[in-house]
Design a protein around this nucleic acid. Structure first.
Length: 271
DNA sequence: ACGAATGTTGCGGG
DNA sequence: ACCCGCAACATTCG
């Protein structure tokens, strides 16, 4: 579910609500939600009432900076991070929550329990396992052009590889490849300069456009107070198997590629 | 009714 | 380097 546009949407919605707030306490309801094994440290440091200095995103990671620590959330498939002035007792999937100044809460829900957060001194472990973020100033046609040549794997798999570019997931990979007219199984180093240029442009175009629509909600993605993203209505290939290609009218195929459901047009996305 | 599939990541094995 | 299958877990789909 949450890929770069969805994570950016969550960050944008949280920023005005939690910035400069102090954390008063922390409650952990599902143990594995704390990825780092340092609950005691976290509890004792939070007793000193740290302030939330900033909230940002890197790839699909939400980075909340405290005075001298970082809380780094990853929503995985079904994570839902939001701010509220009360805890709804009917919410069955709350995995942890931070009580903030003003008696409000930063709440983390997660149906499938895959998501969670790291409590860190620095961001090394995060940056070690992520490549460049598409919104980074250094992400350019030159960067992708230079680096894509070194990679032989199929482009779909490369786009999903967070150590290469971070933030793209299964939905946007398919959307980007369709718009760029690139076959998902095309070896990355076989893509010609013209197509690489399209790929570069379309990564930014699609991700930025989706952010404008607050991301894609197919089933679970939510932000703020139960709000959903509406980019689903803009999807051109993802989920459209057996329907007509919006460009050439041929049938959209669905096939498992790189271990993931992949949607593409065999006619206008050629090898 | 029950196995398969779901938008993520990390690991182990070939 | 690359590819695959599986695991983490809950719910829905066919």
């Amino acid at each position: 579910m949450p890929e770069l546009p969805e994570v950016q949407t969550v960050v944008n919605s949280l920023h005005p609500k939690i910035i400069n707030k102090k954390i008063l306490s922390f409650d952990l309801l599902w143990n594995k939600t704390l990825y780092t094994n340092n609950l005691n440290t976290l509890k004792s440091e939070i007793s000193k009432l740290p302030e939330i200095i900033s909230i940002n995103r890197h790839g699909k990671y939400i980075i909340i900076k405290l005075n001298n620590k970082f809380i780094v959330f990853h929503l995985r498939m079904t994570g839902y991070l939001y701010h509220s002035i009360n805890i709804n007792a009917k919410s069955s999937y709350i995995r942890c929550f931070f009580t903030l100044s003003n008696n409000s809460y930063l709440i983390y829900e997660d149906i499938r329990k895959f998501g969670g957060f790291y409590y860190l001194d620095n961001l090394n472990v995060i940056f070690d396992k992520t490549g460049i973020d598409p919104m980074d100033i250094n992400f350019s046609f030159d960067w992708i052009s230079k680096n894509i040549k070194k990679r032989k794997k199929m482009i779909k798999s490369l786009l999903l590889d967070q150590r290469f570019i971070c933030g793209i997931g299964n939905i946007y990979a398919d959307e980007i490849l369709w718009l760029s007219k690139i076959h998902p199984k095309m070896p990355a180093n076989n893509i010609n300069a013209n197509k690489v240029n399209k790929l570069y442009t379309n990564i930014l175009k699609i991700l930025n456009n989706s952010i404008k629509y607050h991301g894609t909600t197919i089933i679970n993605f939510k932000f703020d107070n139960m709000k959903t993203g509406t980019y689903k209505n803009q999807l051109t290939v993802y989920g459209r198997q057996n329907q007509n290609c919006k460009r050439c009218n041929n049938i959209i195929h669905r096939q498992k590629i790189a271990g993931r459901s992949t949607f593409f047009c065999k006619f206008c996305q050629k090898y």
